[in-house]
């Protein structure tokens, strides 16, 4: 199933979702007050330390998860260095990477079901009616179920196109793709009605 969850279980997996989310929230607030590049760099090293506590494999995974933003980070650093000052650039980039890494750590070490459970309880505490909570849970399940179905359909459309054309499909596949999803919504709503009285 779709998930960002880290396979090797780590020390952080055993920490409950609530405290981890709260800590992330507080850290995000505090990070705005980091005074200079050195402090921000220390914050980043500290987050890496949190990864390291759970072992090398986990640290490696955490670093890999940062790869997609490295290019943008380098650009921002260069831009700052050119337009303003390198120190300011280093502060911004280190702070951003530290926060992303910390947030990734929470996501990697918390099971989807636990997060959902946490959300469910938060909504109950906020007095959201049970019917609406049920609708949210149902919607979440539907997305998890149908995203892979739609991905397969997109690939089938591309294959059907390539079987008859040497040119690239481009945006013209969008129409059948969207139509397919809307038609799926009709059959799903039928399946829901076949098994629910009120929703």
């Amino acid at each position: 199933m779709l998930s960002l969850n880290s396979e090797p279980r780590s020390f952080w997996h055993d920490v409950p979702a609530g405290p981890k989310l709260l800590a992330l929230l507080i850290a995000t607030g505090l990070a705005m007050w980091l005074p200079n590049a050195a402090a921000a760099a220390m914050a980043f090293v500290a987050v890496m330390g949190l990864y390291a506590v759970a072992g090398w494999a986990f640290l490696r995974q955490g670093l890999l998860a940062l790869r997609p933003v490295l290019f943008v980070a380098a650009l921002i650093l260069a831009w700052h260095g050119w337009a303003l000052s390198w120190g300011q650039g280093a502060l911004v980039v280190a702070r951003m990477l530290a926060l992303i890494a910390l947030a990734n750590l929470v996501s990697m070490s918390t099971a989807l079901a636990d997060l959902l459970d946490r959300v469910e309880r938060a909504l109950a505490w906020l007095r959201v009616p049970p019917l609406w909570r049920q609708r949210l849970a149902l919607s979440v399940a539907l997305v998890v179920r149908f995203t892979p179905v739609l991905i397969v359909k997109g690939q089938q459309l591309q294959r059907a196109w390539r079987a008859r054309s040497r040119r690239r499909p481009g945006w013209r596949l969008m129409l059948p793709f969207v139509l397919g999803a809307l038609d799926d919504a009709e059959t799903v709503s039928e399946a829901l009605r076949a098994r629910t009285g009120t929703l």
Partner: peptide, 27 residues
């Protein structure tokens, strides 16, 4: 009367993908 209908009639569609709503079998 959908509530009573649920106890009365069940339907099996041609395409299981039109029927299966949830990610896992137990759900």
């Amino acid at each position: 009367d959908r509530r009573a209908a649920l106890q009365t009639v069940g339907i099996l569609f041609q395409n299981p993908d039109h029927q299966l709503i949830f990610p896992t079998v137990m759900e």
